[in-house]
């Protein structure tokens, strides 16, 4: 079972998170209809390393792009065009750059899906009544049932004390 407290304002959610963490809850999440600034810091989410992945993919893309051109135009099929050198780095730079961006963009997207666990069309949370407003105008504090401090009655009482609009629960 997972408990959710529903709020109408982003600041109420941030406030509730602060108090829940103060009370010792550690497996918290929040659902919000937009990227609330300060939310990740409030929950103590470590900065994502997504951009490291993107950088690495971009570097791999650039290297692959450059050596692909060198191999095709200078090694496997050397062709003299206009007396230019076979390995004409000047002329290879643009495609190298496109490969770098392509690598970073695609690699980052795959990493984003990987780390967020999406696509996941069915989630137990979707069964909660009123959850559809999480994508519209409501903010939810989510206390996972696996939290060490979780106890069905006590946690519900704690969440009620935060004066939310409602406290909701998942069926499983």
């Amino acid at each position: 079972m997972t408990l959710l407290a529903e709020f109408a304002a982003a600041d109420d959610l941030l406030d509730a998170i602060k108090r829940a963490r103060g009370a010792g809850y550690s497996r918290l999440d929040a659902l919000a209809p937009f990227a609330v600034s300060g939310l990740a810091e409030a929950l103590g989410i470590r900065p994502s390393r997504l951009r490291v992945v993107m950088f690495a993919c971009g570097a791999i893309g650039a290297a692959a792009g450059f050596f692909l051109q060198v191999w095709m135009n200078a090694i496997d099929y050397p062709l003299n065009t206009g007396g230019r050198p076979l390995v004409a780095w000047q002329a290879f730079m643009l495609v190298t750059f496109e490969f770098a961006v392509l690598g970073a963009a695609v690699g980052g997207f795959v990493a984003l899906l990987w780390r967020t666990g999406l696509p996941r069309l069915h989630d137990p949370l979707f069964a909660v009544s009123g959850i559809e407003r999480a994508s519209q105008d409501r903010f939810f504090l989510v206390v996972d049932g696996g939290d060490p401090k979780f106890e069905p009655e006590g946690t519900r009482a704690f969440l009620e004390a935060l004066r939310p609009i409602a406290v909701r629960e998942t069926s499983t």
Partner: peptide
């Protein structure tokens, strides 16, 4: 929507990716 539910963890990564893009 790929099952997007607006989780704070997802928003954090989404923002990193979107700004980098």
């Amino acid at each position: 929507a790929l099952g997007w539910r607006g989780s704070a963890h997802h928003w954090a990564r989404y923002e990193r990716y979107y700004w980098a893009m």
